[in-house]
Design a binder for these strands. Structure first.
Lengths: 212, 212
DNA sequence: ATGGTATTTGACCAATCGGTCAAAAGAAGG
DNA sequence: CCTTCTTTTGACCGATTGGTCAAATACCAT
C-alpha cells in the first residue's frame, strides 16, 4: 500500500470510463455551471457545488482534482460551441441572410443557455483572468476574418456601410444582454418571455442598419 | 467604561463629520469599487479592499459597519447617477436628437466610469440579489414612462416604428458592452481606444434604425 | 502641557474556505 | 462466498473569511 494514487484514477484530464463516472461528472458540471454563473469563480464554493450536485465535497473532489479544474473544463467546453455560430457564417452566402441568421442563432443561444452566457459574462467582466490568451489569439483571428468578409460585402455594395468589427460587437451585446441581464429585463418587462419580441426587434434593427 | 458604543460613532448611515472621515470614506469607497467591480460581491474580500485603500481591516470597519454596508452604499450612490441620462430625456424635444443624445451620454458614462458599469453588471448578472426590488419599482416605472414618450413619437410619425422598451434595452446593451466587456473588446481590437469608433458606429446604427 | 476625542492597530475569534486521507461501503466477476 | 476495484464518506488540516475588542496612538482645543 505504498502508492497513494489509485490505479484507475479518472479525474483530471482523463475521460470517464464507467457509467457512474460519466453520470457524476455531468451532474457536477451542471451544478458547477449553476453556481459559477451565479456567483463568479471566487464567489462560488465547492460546498455549494457539491450540495447542488447532491454529492459530498470529498466525493466531488474524487471526480475533479480542484475547483479550478471544474471551472476550466466548463469554460473550455463552452468556448467551442459559443463561437460556432460565428464560424458558421458563410462568406459566399447572401450577406443580409447570413448576418440575420447569426443574430437569430446567437439569440437562441442566449435563450436556451443563459447560464452558459452568464458564466462567460462573469469571466469577461472580471477581467477574463483565465481566458484572456484565448481572446487575444483565436477569438481575435476569428473576428478579424469575419470582419474581412463583412468589409468585402460592404465594398461590393451588398450591405450598407458599417464598421464590421463594431457590427459584430453589436450583435454580441444585443443578444447576450437578454441572457446576462435577464433579471433586469424581466423586472422591467414583467415575467413574460421577452425572446419573441426581442427576435422581432433585433431583426428589424439589423435590417434597417444594413439595408443598402 | 460601561458603554461600548463610541459617542461620536459616525459609521453606518451617519454622514462624515471630520475631514479625515470624509477622506477615508472616499478612499474606502474608491478601493471597494475597484475590488467589487472586479470580483463581484462574494469574490471580494475586506482584506483586499483595506489593502487597496491603504488601511488596516479594523480601521476600514471603523468607517463602515460591514462588507454589505460598503457594497450597499456604493450601489446606492451609483443608481441615481446611472439613470440620470434616461431621466434627462425630454419628451418635448426632437425625438432623434433626444435619443442620440442619450446614447452619447450613456457611452460617455461607459468610457468614464467603466468600474461603476461593471459593478452594476456584476450585480445584475448574479441575479441582482441586492437591488431587485429597486428594479421592479423605480426602474420599471422609469422605463415605462420613457417607453410611453417613445411610443408617442412613433405614433406621431417622428421616428420609425420600433418596440420602445427593446429600444431602451438596445441602448443599454450596446453602450455598456464597451465597459463591461472591455477586455474582450480590447483583446479583439488591440489596445487602441475603441470609444471614438464606437460613438460613430452607434450614431449610425440608431440613425438608420429610427429614420422615418 | 493636559485632557478629551477621534483614529488606528495587533491580537484574536468563530465560521468557512479549498483540499487531503484513511477507512468504509458498493459493485462486479469468479 | 471471496476478492478486487470503484465509489463514498467522516474526520481533519492549514489558510482565509468577516468581524470584534481593548489598548495604543494621533489630534485638537484649552
Amino acid at each position: 500500500m505504498a502508492g497513494r494514487a489509485a490505479k484507475s484514477q479518472t479525474s483530471g484530464t482523463g475521460k470517464p470510463r464507467t457509467r457512474i463516472q460519466k453520470r457524476n461528472r455531468e451532474m457536477i458540471l451542471r451544478a458547477a455551471l449553476q453556481v459559477f454563473s451565479q456567483h463568479g469563480f471566487r464567489g462560488a464554493t465547492l460546498d455549494q457545488i457539491a450540495n447542488e450536485a447532491g454529492l459530498s465535497k470529498p466525493n466531488l473532489l474524487y471526480y475533479f482534482p480542484s475547483k479550478d479544474a471544474i471551472h476550466h473544463e466548463l469554460l473550455q467546453g463552452l468556448l467551442d460551441t459559443w463561437l460556432d455560430p460565428l464560424r458558421a457564417m458563410n462568406p459566399d452566402g447572401e450577406p443580409l441572410d447570413e448576418i440575420l441568421a447569426y443574430v437569430r442563432r446567437k439569440l437562441e443561444l442566449a435563450r436556451d443557455f443563459p447560464r452558459e452566457s452568464r458564466l462567460f459574462a462573469n469571466e469577461i467582466v472580471q477581467g477574463a483572468p483565465r481566458i484572456l490568451p484565448y481572446l487575444e489569439t483565436d477569438l481575435r483571428t476569428l473576428v478579424a476574418d469575419t470582419s474581412g468578409h463583412i468589409a468585402r460585402w460592404i465594398d461590393e455594395g451588398r450591405i450598407a456601410q458599417v464598421d464590421p468589427t463594431h457590427l459584430i460587437f453589436s450583435i454580441w451585446a444585443l443578444t447576450q444582454h437578454y441572457a446576462d441581464f435577464e433579471v433586469q429585463v424581466t423586472a422591467v418587462l414583467g415575467k413574460d418571455d421577452p425572446y419573441e419580441t426581442a427576435a422581432t426587434h433585433l431583426e428589424t434593427l439589423f435590417r434597417r442598419m444594413l439595408a443598402v
